[in-house]
Amino acid sequence: MKPYYWESQHGNFGDDLNLWLWDFLLPGFREVHADVLLVGVGTVLNDALLPQDGRKLVLGSGFGYGTLPDMRDRDLWDVRCVRGPLTAARVGLPAELGIIDPAVLVADMSEFANRPKRIKCAFVPHWESAVAGLWPVVCATAGLHYIDPRGEAKDVIREIAECELIVAESMHGAILADAFRVPWVAVSTSANINGFKWRDWAGTVGVDPTARRIPISTRAEAISKGARFWGVDYDGASHAAEESAVAVTTAAPRSGLRLAAKQVLAAPSTLALWQASRAEPQLSADARLLERKERLYAVLEGVRRDYL
């Protein structure tokens, strides 16, 4: 059996954790049923992403983009559970099979247990924001630690576990924070952030997915997201302009004067991020999270009986 995950060319820890999470949850799964694809963490129930042929075992995946694949053939699709009730409704499953995002079980791995709380507050942006934004500088100015979601997944997760508070634009930043019992605040920099998948997960643990709006930090970020920056609408920007702007933003080294100018332009982002770090955070109830995890473990036990 082989795990499937969506692979960003930039890296994204919420998807990349599929590379090792299932070895912890289903030891030995790689050695059996070579014809089966394990479809796990991520918004991957998308006809354009998954291969048409072959058997699939779905464990906690979500819908949120594009078109659902035709999953009616139960000889090809073994859907044990999905990420949440919204995905369950789209797939045509009972709501109780929208259990939770399997990423929450990362917190049960011994290598992440009892991490020291060495970081007071950190910001985890969406990977698209990290590509073209000025967020490390914005965080430094606002007094927050910056966690790059494109980093090696285990390193990113350790940093989340070591925080006292998380400000999350990355949904898996919030999911992992909640799993580690770290209070969190949801934020969003643009309408591109997928509210469906946030509501899907939030419905499983009884939290409010409403995000505070944070202004975009750079012109390049606005171009990449087709958004507005300092009164200019970049919705119709060409792909060439996007590539050029992102290249300029990520180029190094920057002159001190140019960086200072960018900091001035990012001042609204800095203020809003600072305010978010002082907003009332949230955390799911211990009993609710435990109940969902127990249900997911029960599903995994059934998979072990049937496949291993």
Rank of each mutant, 00 (worst) to 15 (best):
L134M: 08
D108K: 08
R80A: 05
L49G: 11
V167M: 12
D178Q: 13
V106W: 03
K154G: 14
H126P: 08
W127V: 11
D75M: 13
F63N: 15
V185Q: 02
A177K: 02
R74F: 09
V167Q: 02
T141R: 15
L76N: 13
I147A: 09
F63S: 15
I160V: 15
P69E: 12
I166T: 06
A174M: 15
K120N: 12
G143C: 02
E96W: 12
W135N: 07
V104T: 08
L57F: 01
A113H: 08
D70K: 09
V58K: 04
K154S: 14
E162D: 08
K154M: 15
E164L: 11
D178I: 02
A142P: 14
P183T: 12
L49S: 08
N114D: 14
I147E: 11
M71C: 09
R74T: 14
A95Y: 03
V131R: 14
T87G: 07
M109F: 08
V79Q: 00
V185A: 02
F63R: 08
V104K: 03
W135Q: 01
L57A: 03
A132T: 04
P136W: 10
R72E: 15
M171F: 00
S129A: 14
P116C: 09
G60A: 00
D75T: 06
L97M: 11
D108M: 05
M71E: 03
A179P: 06
A113Y: 07
V138F: 04
D101H: 03
D73T: 04
G66K: 01
L86V: 04
F180M: 04
L57G: 00
R83P: 10
R55C: 10
I119S: 05
G151E: 09
G133P: 05
R72V: 13
F63I: 14
A89E: 14
I100R: 01
W77I: 01
F123I: 02
W184H: 15
W184F: 15
F112D: 05
W77L: 04
D53R: 15
D73F: 00
F112H: 09
G133L: 06
R55H: 11
D101T: 08
A95C: 01
R80S: 06
W77T: 10
I99W: 03
V167S: 02
R74V: 13
V138S: 01
I160L: 07
C121Q: 12
H126R: 00
T87Y: 10
G66M: 07
